[in-house]
Design a protein around this nucleic acid. Structure first.
Length: 582
RNA sequence: GCGCCCGUAGCUCAGUGGAUAGAGCGCUGGCCUCCGAAGCCAGAGGUCGCAGGUUCGAAUCCUGCCGGGCGCGCCA
């Protein structure tokens, strides 16, 4: 039960009917059924006649006239006309819109759930931060975008798995282990001197070092690196993953699967992947061109084994083995993506930070090759987050100690504000995040503005309980209310917005753009605040009208439906709907 | 040099091929003798970077320029 979906069905039937008359089959083309920008063009407009006229050998306006002839018989349609080059514009019976409120009240938060995905399995991989330290704010954006996208796709009917790829192999974690060992010696009372330039300098390792000392005592002191490297590394990785999982928990992010690079590598998956590519002639030995546009005094041509990613649209072939014989990150990542595909995910989505943008093409090429075109793979690249405080940029420097971690920001403004702010831009756009703005209680702050609308709605319902003791204002009771009193243009405008919620969810899911949910909620909140304010000007237009329970009930049905849609959207965003502002 | 992203109101930005391009901020002017103003309403403000092309129709798709950001051998 979805107004736009129902009208679309009417159009499809009408198009099919005309096609039958003309002895042609209607092409499976997409056409619009949507609110026009300009309200003078009615409540719903369709370009169906413009889309199908060509295939039917008709003029668009003639086809539009035929569609109108079919559609005007429907009970739902109050007015219908042809306009411009062949748009069909219509106005529905107000009751058709109002009935949508009953549907919303019946569905609750589940309103807007869709079967678009038809249960197809989707793997969303996000965060995947190296286990070498706490998360920073940029990581937080990827975490929120990935988490909201996963929730959005789930609402749209996909079977979503949320996955984290743990880079627990390779030189980074060896470096982490050596950094920790340095701290460990310090903790044990030795004076190891300054840290090496490439070590991880953060203080967080001091606590981990103490924990290591508490567990193992001084047994690693004076030992050769071959002896301590592995146990210290394992300890470090575990500690860092605990740290990261804590950061994620504070943000309200939880993954279903933590995939280990080390386990993958030791399973032989990399070798299997590469030998498959070898058999298919997709590996070759070659010499890459030197990198352009940057200082390259160290560059020397070297023949190496390359993956033929240019055959799948990449700009250059890519190395798969380092000079020391170990795999490149790309090689293990190919194996990992093949593994995801083989675990039964035809749709793979990765959420990456801006610093990995240059790797998109080669990964697309790799998945294309490894799935034989069977996987739908896409990468959402999250642009930078510019932190500021009341308009002043917060300079971040690890050296100067002004580095701001994600955890600090979450503790400062709360997870809801962080999550909402992170979704106020498309993922590809750079995002300005002002710490003061995020907690400001004003129209400027979208988090507040949407939360406030929900709280106001809850407040009206509380007021109703006071004004009409003993009356039943449950969702079920409101769903049975006579809704005819909802006849103001502002009321109907809000109802139309609520009726558009399922469309919004589907469109956002198809585009993989969770930020659209934030925008939609802001618009719904604005319509609601406007309606609320009419009650300031004219008491007769308040939601709760003393002495008129029937009118109040009808209006509260709209109020409650609005709150449910906002809550439904906030649920996708992972933001709690508050019942009162404190 | 190549690749990706961005270019829309003074500022920050929405806008999956539709009709006269929107919102917030800022500016101007209005709405409560609080108990529904943490808000609302109205107004001014645009060559959608430029030039071609495709289309019945382009901010949206294609090509070429201009400007800005990010990235570019074995790092992850």
């Amino acid at each position: 039960m979805n107004v736009y979906g129902d009208i679309r069905t009417l159009f499809r039937d009408a198009v099919g009917h005309v096609a039958g008359e003309r002895g042609v089959s209607a092409p499976d083309a997409d056409f619009s059924v949507e609110p026009p920008r300009d309200a003078r063009h009615g409540e719903i407009s369709s370009n169906a006649a413009l889309v199908f006229a060509g295939a039917f050998g008709m003029k668009p306006r003639d086809l539009a006239d035929r569609l109108v002839a079919r559609l005007e018989a429907s009970d739902a349609v109050a007015e219908i006309s042809v306009a411009g080059p062949g748009f069909v514009n219509l106005v529905l019976e107000p009751g058709r819109w109002r009935d949508q409120l009953r549907h919303i009240l019946g569905q609750g938060i589940g309103y807007g759930d869709s079967q678009l995905g038809a249960g197809q399995r989707v793997n969303v991989e996000y965060v995947s931060v190296n286990p070498t330290g706490p998360m920073h704010v940029g990581h937080g954006r990827g975490a929120v975008v990935g988490d909201a996208l996963a929730a959005l796709l789930a609402k749209a009917g996909y079977a979503v798995t949320r996955e984290y790829y743990v880079n627990d192999a390779g030189v980074q974690v060896d470096l982490l282990a050596r950094s920790l060992y340095h701290r460990y010696r310090e903790a044990a009372g030795e004076a190891p001197g300054d840290m090496r330039e490439d070590f991880y300098p953060g203080d967080y390792l001091a606590g981990t070092a103490s924990a290591l000392l508490a567990r193992d005592g001084t047994k690693w002191l004076g030992a050769a690196e071959e002896v301590w490297l592995e146990p210290v590394r394992d300890f470090a990785i575990e500690a860092m993953m605990d740290l990261i999982r804590d950061d994620l928990a504070a943000l309200g992010v939880a993954h279903d699967v933590f995939a280990s690079e080390r386990e993958l590598a030791s399973s032989g998956a990399v070798e299997r992947t590469l030998s498959e590519l070898e058999e298919r002639g997709l590996l070759h030995v070659g010499v890459l061109d030197p990198p352009k546009g940057k200082a390259d005094e160290d560059w020397e041509p070297r023949p190496q084994t390359l993956f033929r990613s240019t055959a799948f649209g990449d700009d250059a072939d890519r190395a798969i083995r380092k000079s020391d014989g170990s795999w490149t990150y790309f090689a293990t990542d190919m194996a990992y993506h093949r593994d995801k595909f083989e675990r039964g995910f035809p749709v793979l989505i990765d959420v990456w930070g801006a610093d990995h943008k240059g790797y998109v093409k080669r990964m697309e090429a790799a998945v294309e090759a490894l799935s034989a075109g069977g996987a739908r793979f896409s990468v959402l690249v999250c642009n930078l987050v510019n932190l500021s405080e009341a308009g002043r940029p917060v300079k971040m420097s690890k050296r100067a100690g002004t580095y701001v971690t994600l955890r600090e920001v979450v503790d400062r403004v709360g997870k809801d504000a962080v999550r909402f702010m992170m979704l106020t831009r498309g993922n590809e756009a750079a995002l300005d995040f002002d710490l003061a703005r995020a907690v400001e209680q004003s129209r400027d702050n979208p988090v507040f503005y949407v939360q406030y609308a929900h709280a106001r709605a809850c407040s009206a319902l509380r007021n109703a309980a006071d004004a009409f003791p003993g009356e039943d204002f449950s969702d079920a009771a409101l769903g049975r209310a006579a809704l005819d009193p909802l006849d103001g243009e502002e009321e109907l405008a809000l109802i139309r917005r609520l009726a558009g919620w399922p469309r919004t969810v589907e469109a956002a899911a198809e585009a993989a753009e969770p930020h659209r949910i934030a925008y939609a909620l802001s618009e719904i909140a604005a319509a609601f605040h406007g309606l609320w304010n009419l009650g300031n000007v004219d008491e007769a237009r308040r939601f709760v009208v003393a002495g008129d329970p029937a009118l109040s009930r009808a209006r509260l049905a709209l109020v409650r439906a609005t709150a449910l849609v906002i809550a439904s959207g906030l649920d996708i965003m992972g933001v709690a709907p508050v019942e009162e502002m404190r």
